[in-house]
């Protein structure tokens, strides 16, 4: 469908839409030994929206995330990031789009140990050739947004696990980046620290980013606006948090 238009073209999407998957399928191998990881996924993520993906191991959660982030090309279907059809773009341009638009947050933080928190955060901007001063300001802004401005010059080993994960979130929103793709981001953290990271993720999404949170933990998924269940590569259910009722009688306002 999309191949009719010239490479790099944009087509209309909803103004707030950051990511769209249209009929995304992923098969590994061919013929009788072919394995279906994803079977026709439709999903959108808009600004201000956090979508949780839940499912058992092998349900396709992580595959979905790598496809959404343009790291893997689906067997069929379309991935649209900020109005750009990835199938229209050569791989070099996908890499640029990825660098400018989205950031990954992984379970094991994935910070570069020889770089400071600030350098880790600004790495994508430097690769993009931003001027030094602008890079510095953007890096500090992103670190301030996750409450770590004072830790800008520290190295990962001098930060706690929770702080390292907040640096990873800062890296995912630095500069023009606004789509956070998080794969079990609290997996390596204790429960209370993990909650702080989720609170920060929620906070950044409320400030205008969009996010996908892959998790197998219902308590973590509950921070999302929508919870999507995957089973055998298909979306089997979706929970939307539209108008939360107050469940707690007599809750005073602080």
């Amino acid at each position: 469908m999309s191949t009719q238009l010239a490479a790099g073209s944009t087509r209309p999407t909803k103004p707030d839409e950051l990511l769209r998957l249209d009929g995304v399928a992923m098969h590994y191998g061919r013929g009788e030994t072919s394995v279906t990881a994803l079977a026709g996924i439709d999903l959108t993520v808009s600004r201000g929206e956090l979508v949780a993906i839940m499912g058992a191991s092998g349900s396709g959660k992580s595959t979905l995330l790598t496809i959404a982030g343009g790291l893997t090309q689906p067997t069929s279907g379309e991935v649209v990031i900020e109005g750009q059809w990835l199938s229209d773009l050569p791989s070099a341009q996908i890499a640029i789009l990825r660098r400018r638009t989205l950031g990954f947050v992984f379970q094991d933080f994935n910070l570069i140990p020889t770089l400071t928190a600030q350098e880790n955060v600004t790495l994508p901007l430097e690769l993009d050739g931003w001027p030094r001063r602008k890079t510095r300001t953007a890096g500090l802004d992103a670190l301030a947004a996750v409450g770590l401005k004072d830790h800008a010059q520290r190295f990962p080993e001098d930060l706690s696990g929770g702080q390292q994960q907040r640096v990873a979130i800062a890296r995912a929103i630095v500069g023009t980046r606004r789509l956070i793709l998080a794969d079990e981001p609290t997996g390596a953290l204790d429960s209370a620290t993990g909650e702080g990271v989720l609170r920060m993720l929620r906070d950044r999404v409320d400030a205008g980013a969009g996010g996908i949170l892959v998790t197998h933990d219902a308590r973590h998924a509950a921070w999302a606006d929508r919870i999507v269940f995957l089973r055998d590569g298909r979306i089997v259910d979706e929970n939307v948090r539209d108008h939360p009722e107050s469940l707690l009688a007599g809750r005073r306002t602080i």
């Binding site: 219902a218 998924a221 509950a222 259910d237 929970n239 009722e245 469940l247 602080i254």
Partner: peptide, 26 residues
């Protein structure tokens, strides 16, 4: 089970939202 899970998750989301809205304890 699926109907119940949807309901239980809704409860979980509402509780989480309530907690998030209240911020850090003072």
């Amino acid at each position: 089970i699926q109907v119940q899970r949807r309901g239980s998750l809704r409860t979980l989301q509402d509780l989480t939202k309530t907690k998030n809205a209240s911020g850090e304890p003072e």
